[in-house]
Computed example of a mutant assay.
Amino acid sequence: MGSDRGPVDNQGYYDCLGVSKGADDNAIKKAYRRLAVKLHPDKEGGDPERFKELGEAYAVLSDPDKRRTYDQYGKAALDGSGGGSAPQSTDFAEDIFSALFGGGGGRRRGGAGGAGGGFRSAPRAPDATYELEVPLADLYSGATRRVRVWTQKVGGGGGAPVRAPKDVDIVIERGMRAGAAVVLKGEQDPGIPGIAPGDLVFVLREAPPDANGGGFTRVGDHLVVDVELTLAEALLGFCRPLCHLDGTTIKVRG
């Protein structure tokens, strides 16, 4: 009996990486690294779709068993989906991260009494810094502000990063000054497997006086407010109620 199986699709992944079917593991890894840096969505001219396809191709061709199945039976034999996702080993992720951002996590080696061992710390995503305008009342009394930022998460399939909104709570402690920073450790998602998250940093900026309510300004450790007086009050004295930044009412005499 003759077979009715169609042509085997076992060339596309090699074409995607730009290597021949006889390429060894090192050549495949180098090809993936070069193209991943070029096509990564965070790079100018990057291509998310091709980056995803690249990750799928590498996941198959870098695995001896999957590659053997692909060569013999084609893509359809790999669970009908290519069976791949972007590589996730820490060492390889560090290579890609270093090429993208110009740096990575430090490496630490060592062991007691020269016994060997040690570890390599995961490469870390760069911090993201934002400026947050807050009214003087928040700096005076303290407050919690919810802020939405855009970060990245690992996409499906090939793992290409996908932009996603993220809501975070910024705790402004009582007495903080303009220029102070609120740091949220580990909240800056890199969107790349094997990369440790960075920090979200919010630098506080005091809102203009007309947005503070009551016209208060801060001078050093003091609060200053202008009060308009009549001529009679200036000559004879006055007693005025004044709404403080914390909402309480105080009497000002002069």
Rank of each mutant, 00 (worst) to 15 (best):
F101W: 11
D91T: 03
T90S: 06
G103W: 08
R67M: 03
S85W: 02
G74K: 10
R67Y: 05
Q88C: 12
I96T: 11
A77W: 08
D95S: 12
A76Y: 15
R107A: 06
P87K: 06
T90R: 13
S89N: 10
Y73V: 03
G80T: 14
S98W: 00
T90Q: 08
G83T: 05
G84F: 07
A99P: 01
F92Y: 13
F101Y: 15
S98L: 02
G83K: 04
A93D: 00
T69F: 04
F101V: 14
D71K: 14
G83P: 00
G103N: 08
G102H: 12
G80N: 11
I96C: 10
R107V: 03
A99R: 14
L78N: 05
F97E: 00
G80E: 14
D79A: 15
Q88K: 14
F97D: 00
R67C: 05
Y70L: 06
G104I: 01
A86I: 10
D71G: 08
A93E: 02
A76R: 15
S98H: 07
G103F: 10
L100H: 07
K75E: 15
R67Q: 11
S81Y: 09
G104V: 00
T90L: 11
P87D: 12
F101E: 05
S85P: 00
R68S: 13
G80Q: 10
I96K: 06
F92T: 05
G104E: 02
T69H: 03
P87N: 05
L78Y: 09
G102P: 12
I96A: 04
A77G: 08
Y73M: 09
D79S: 15
